Amino acid sequence: MIRIRSLAFVPAVCFPLVASLASAETVDVWFGTTTPRRGESRGIYHSSFDTETGKLTRPTLAAQCDGPGFLELHPDGKTLYATGKPGSADGPRDAVSAFRVSGDAGTRELEFIAAAGTGDGGAAHVSTDHAGKVLLSAQYGGGSTSLYRLAADGSIGALAEVKEHADLLPKVGSGVVEGRQNASHAHWTGTSPDDRFAFVPDLGMDRVVIWKLDADKPSLTHHGFGVCPPGGGPRHMKFGTDGSKIYVLNELALSITVFDYDTEKGEMTPVQTIPTLSDEIKAKENFNSASEIRVHPSGRFVYAANRGHDSISVFQVDDTGKLEAVEVESIRGGWPRNFNIDPSGKWLIAAGRDSNTATVFAIDAETGELTFTRQTQSVPTPICVLFAK
């Protein structure tokens, strides 16, 4: 039986929370935000989080930046990357930026290094390979994947390539959902555990574009597709912890497609599609769309966020890697564009864009179920939650 806890949002009181900065369990949390004109956000925000108590400190502005919607850390933790760039920075408007990370755990600071143009409009997502050799970005409006060389110190080198998804098929948009799938819309980037392949879910194509990655050159060569259900609208994806499964979140259909992944061949084979919300729940909302997917560090649970219903769906992973629904939990906020799980696997922080909130949930180690801890902090229009590695 699926447990559903869907509560009307009531603005929460933000209690002062003091985490011990000397504690070994203190980690940094970075919040990417949207920065609309006349909005409150000024860029990237920072908090510290105590993984023992689950206490999140009040976020403060870490770096001014226009449109830092998604963030990524270099594998060595010394450089943070963001979509967008500071308004005062030189270069093209549509860019990705690098910031130097300094200081001790819990009190880290950011210093802007430089920005690089995407070559094809604003970036929706940014990521590095596991070795920290390259940076990738997905351009939603441009329908493309961009590849950048990274210097040894983590700074962004030259833009190496821009790959247009429209060049991959005679008709690139699936056309199933009118107005959303008439063209290519690249939405996320990431690499396989061995860094041999890069993956870009494309909402407009109903496919995950698979690139063969040469991180030394660097270059991308089209390798194939992971095919999602028609009208699904793939948005984000994550590998299972053993690398044998891929979980793709379909934004438009509010579902997850599970793929078997052939490590040697770099091929995706669909084995299951499961809804994140029931038809009955969706019928009661004016609008719903899926936004983010995460795999628990144990590999035993998968989580997906639902905008409109403003909830997180919890799934258990069975012995074959397929999913079974456990519960649907309200985020106690509005429009969960993003959420993340802390390194200990004990806590989940959900970002409510429209409620300007970050809410903390405890994760049950046996069932994966979420329990609201009554810890809420104010963050202006948060749309990305990133824990320090």
Rank of each mutant, 00 (worst) to 15 (best):
V295P: 10
V295A: 09
V295F: 08
V295D: 05
P297W: 05
P297L: 03
P297M: 07
S298D: 04
S298K: 03
S298G: 06
S298A: 04
G299V: 04
G299R: 08
G299Q: 01
R300D: 15
F301I: 00
F301N: 01
F301D: 02
F301V: 03
F301Q: 03
V302I: 02
V302M: 05
V302Q: 00
Y303A: 08
Y303T: 05
Y303W: 04
Y303P: 02
Y303S: 11
A304F: 08
A305V: 04
A305S: 15
A305N: 05
N306W: 11
N306Y: 15
N306E: 15
R307H: 13
G308S: 03
G308L: 05
G308V: 03
H309F: 07
H309E: 15
H309P: 04
H309K: 07
D310I: 11
D310W: 10
D310P: 11
S311D: 12
S311V: 10
I312G: 04
I312W: 09
S313K: 00
S313H: 06
S313V: 00
V314H: 12
V314I: 14
V314L: 13
V314S: 08
V314A: 12
V314F: 15
F315S: 02
F315C: 05
F315M: 00
F315R: 11
F315P: 03
Q316N: 13
Q316H: 08
Q316K: 08
V317R: 06
V317Y: 05
D318T: 00
D318W: 00
D318M: 00
D318Y: 01
D319N: 11
D319E: 14
T320P: 00
T320Q: 05
T320V: 03
T320N: 02
G321M: 02
G321N: 03
K322G: 03
E324A: 15
A325N: 04
A325H: 03
A325R: 05
A325F: 02
A325K: 02
V326M: 10
V326K: 07
E327N: 02
E327I: 00
V328Y: 07
E329N: 06
S330T: 07
I331T: 09
I331N: 07
R332I: 11
R332L: 14
R332G: 05
G333L: 04
G333A: 01
G334I: 09
G334H: 11
G334Y: 09
G334E: 14
W335V: 11
W335T: 14
W335M: 06
P336M: 06
R337T: 10
N338V: 09
N338P: 08
F339P: 06
F339Y: 12
F339K: 07
F339V: 13
N340S: 15
N340K: 14
N340H: 08
N340P: 12
I341D: 13
D342Y: 10
D342S: 11
D342M: 06
D342R: 09
